[in-house]
């Protein structure tokens, strides 16, 4: 255990050129990701092709010597909130008129028109991406606001749909099948490979949703 009371990340083998670093919580995973980006920028991380954060892990792929890094990581102290709090907050306008608004309101125990106020008052952070290019899994919902996926997924969720599942908020970058609970929609373009950056929601991005009429 470190001075901060956190164990060093656990390094799991992934083939001959990758390493999966596992920690105990989503917050620790976000801190570890920030620490890895800091070390890469500082030139103190061995060359790596991909740094892929996820729920409780960060994957490092394209390493020349994963076992050397695994031995090094065992001695790391990852500071809490490394690099957080300084990044600007991205504001995303949302029309809170999703098809599952009533269901989410019932699960939250609030009136339907309260969902917008509650959701837009929170600050989120893109923990990781997956499912589709530019689809971010945003953390920041307190536990009492976590909701299950829909029992039956929809065959088509429209692009820009703002949705909830488990601890996450997400925005569908394009029309796709999906099982998340829809609470609203945004005109923001989440993903445009011709734009720099292509993804609005890159891991680590701080996000607020703003009610638009």
């Amino acid at each position: 255990m470190t001075a901060a009371g956190r164990a060093a990340p656990r390094a799991l083998p992934v083939g001959r050129h990758a390493l999966l670093l596992e920690v105990g919580t989503a917050a620790e995973a976000q801190d570890l990701h920030a620490e890895l980006l800091r070390r890469r920028a500082a030139g103190t991380l061995p060359p790596v092709r991909e740094i892929v954060p996820a729920a409780r892990t960060v994957l490092l792929d394209g390493l020349a010597d994963p076992s050397a890094l695994a031995a090094d990581v065992a001695r790391w102290e990852v500071p809490p909130q490394a690099g957080a709090g300084h990044a600007p907050v991205l504001t995303v306008p949302v029309r809170y008129d999703g098809a599952d608004l009533a269901d989410v309101a019932a699960l939250w125990g609030v009136a339907e028109d309260e969902v917008a106020r509650v959701h837009s008052a929170l600050e989120f952070r893109v923990a990781f991406c997956g499912f589709a290019p530019g689809f971010g899994y945003l953390t920041g919902l307190p536990e009492h606001l976590h909701v299950p996926r829909r029992a039956t997924p929809r065959t088509a969720v429209p692009a820009g749909a703002v949705a909830l599942a488990g601890p996450y908020t997400g925005v569908y970058p394009r029309s796709s099948p999906g099982g998340w609970q829809l609470i609203g929609r945004t005109e923001a373009v989440l993903w445009d490979p011709a734009r720099e950056p292509a993804a609005l929601f890159a891991p680590g991005t701080r996000v607020r949703f703003e009610v638009c009429a």
């Binding site: 954060p53 996820a54 729920a55 994957l59």
Partner: peptide, 10 residues
């Protein structure tokens, strides 16, 4: 298993 990164050949 909470979602985690996967590699080619997994």
């Amino acid at each position: 298993l909470p979602s985690e990164g996967v590699v080619l050949g997994a």
